[in-house]
């Protein structure tokens, strides 16, 4: 086992794959603390959020205080401390979409799923965020489900799209 693998061994004895991936990214920055954003982005990608264990690993390996890491995580919208749903729904509230009624689309999603922005359904399937402009303004109003982009939305289209993921 190499150094990274040794550090990735979980209490159960197996290698924690996510931790291994994270450590690989951390090692790649060679102790450069200014690369914290890269490491946090990687953690967000790997885990889908940034769990306490990941924060500890980053803090120990890069010698950055936990409070500072927490301060950076909570500053940037893309970093989340809570796991997202299996399907993360984003409704764009950027100007072009807003002017074309994306707020109503958002309200419809809230109504159907029974959750608010930032929330997650009890079964962990859907989470909802309002997004900033994703640059698909030609298709306004825009709704995203994970990486899938749905353009030209209106409230009546919401249910059918969500049903695809049930």
């Amino acid at each position: 086992m190499n150094e990274i693998e040794k550090k990735s061994v979980c209490t159960c004895g197996e290698i924690d794959d996510n931790k291994k991936k994270l450590l690989e990214v951390i090692v790649s920055v060679n102790g450069d603390k200014s690369q914290l954003m890269k490491v946090l982005n990687a953690a967000q990608e790997i885990y889908g959020y940034i769990p306490t264990s990941a924060q500890k690993t980053i803090s120990e390996e890069l010698d950055i205080p936990m409070a500072e890491i927490y301060g950076v995580i909570t500053f940037y919208t893309r970093f989340s401390l809570e796991p997202k749903g299996k399907y993360n729904i984003g409704v764009c509230l950027g100007t072009a979409c807003y002017v074309k009624g994306s707020q109503m689309v958002l309200d419809k999603v809230k109504e159907i799923l029974g959750i608010d922005v930032g929330g997650i359904t009890p079964d962990g399937k859907f989470s909802l965020v309002s997004t900033r402009c994703v640059g698909a303004c030609g298709l306004a109003p825009v709704m995203t489900v994970n990486d899938e982009v749905y353009g030209n939305m209106d409230p009546s289209k919401v249910k059918d799209i969500l049903d695809k993921y049930v």
């Binding site: 690369q35 954003m37 946090l40 301060g71 940037y76 900033r132």
Partner: peptide, 22 residues
């Protein structure tokens, strides 16, 4: 990479972010 902060389009905020900070 940025991470979802409009203010990081401001010159010196961008630099703070490149340096790994808020």
């Amino acid at each position: 990479l940025g991470a979802g902060a409009f203010v990081c389009g401001e010159e010196t905020a961008l630099m703070e972010s490149v340096e790994g900070r808020r």
